[in-house]
Design a protein around this nucleic acid. Structure first.
Lengths: 188, 188
DNA sequence: AAAGGTAGCGGAACAACGTTCCGGAAAAAG
DNA sequence: CTTTTTCCGGAACGTTGTTCCGCTACCTTT
């Protein structure tokens, strides 16, 4: 790999990270290329699809979230560890404006990113759930991939303009976690 | 209002309803105009913003959902009525591909639609919650607007491609409802 | 019934988007 | 230093939402 190509790739990742956090994942491709000081052709050479760039940028942050799990597991009992890691995951997702929307935009465009999300995060949650089930701290099991998707969906503003939104995501996620404790039967 | 204008407006609403259910709310404006047999200029005369058309199409369906509440309230005890109405709301939202994504797309574009959602649905849920709280069937209160937004967010596919998604939305919503029963304290 | 004024229509035109393409510049190899 | 290969830049294309204006045809008025 040529030296200038490597340099441009780094610039692009850095620029994309900045732009995404400023304007969300819907930011125009041209804006990213401009901030990186390269042409759009260069961007598309490294990332044939827009979603490839998004994937690359978020991969490292996903890894950081996964890596946080062992520390939490060691420091708290199983049930509380589960809660704390989910809250940690919440904080990661909450900062990515438009990410959840992109993930279920319908088409096959963002499948690779969703794939990676699940590939890394699912086993972590599976382990936390098993531990909490074994210790009897939660009553119901759930599919980890489903649960992660649900939490991610909850972590975005939504709702009417004037409504209280401070802490909304966290409140709803805590409600979901409380649901795992209950085991209450609901009507069909 | 002129007769042909009235006729075109009806055609547009009818066409939009069809196209939205076939291709989701992201369907191109031109496709709707073409199906209605009018030019895009006519469409924009009646609906200055794309979101205005979406609002108009969904208003009647929201109303239907609100109107279903009294029947459910009369037929079931408070707690079960709450569950059943939320499930009914779920079914409505689930069929609107891309609607939730549009609602929290960030900008002010879809605010009128979200406003109307909340304006109609919030009081209904407020009443159901109060009844269930009064009868002691649920332990925790929530902000109705928040809860509705959360449920709407849960009603979309998300997750990795291969994962189980059959009934996912319903399972997650039931978990959320179970959370209202619990009242379990969670860690900070 | 005819005629005029005007509400309203159609679709070309514009800006911004994602994506493609290729002439030429610059890095690596000899 | 020359050759070869890699890779860059940005013009160009197709599709989006939205605007604009000349002309149609509807309603009113006589």
């Amino acid at each position: 790999m040529r030296a200038d190509a490597r340099q441009n790739l780094d610039s692009l990742l850095e620029a994309a990270k900045t732009v995404f956090s400023e304007s969300g994942v819907d930011a125009p491709v041209r804006a990213i290329a401009e901030r990186a000081g390269v042409g759009v052709g260069t961007l598309y050479r490294h990332f044939p699809l827009r979603s490839d760039l998004i994937s690359a940028v978020f991969r490292r942050e996903i890894d950081a979230c996964v890596d946080a799990a062992p520390d939490i597991e060691a420091a708290y009992p199983a049930g509380e560890a589960l809660d704390r890691w989910i809250i940690r995951y919440t904080e990661f997702v909450a900062t990515k404006r438009g990410l959840a929307a992109a993930l279920h935009s319908g088409g096959t465009t963002y499948e690779p990113l969703a794939e990676y999300f699940s590939m890394r995060l699912t086993p972590t949650l599976r382990r936390l759930l098993d531990a909490a089930l074994a210790s009897g701290e939660i009553a119901d099991d759930v599919d980890p991939a489903e649960f992660l998707g649900a939490v991610a969906n909850l972590c975005h503003a939504g709702g009417p303009p004037g409504s209280v939104s401070e802490g909304r995501a966290e409140r709803m996620v805590r409600l979901l976690l409380a649901g795992l404790r209950g085991g209450t039967e609901l009507p069909v």
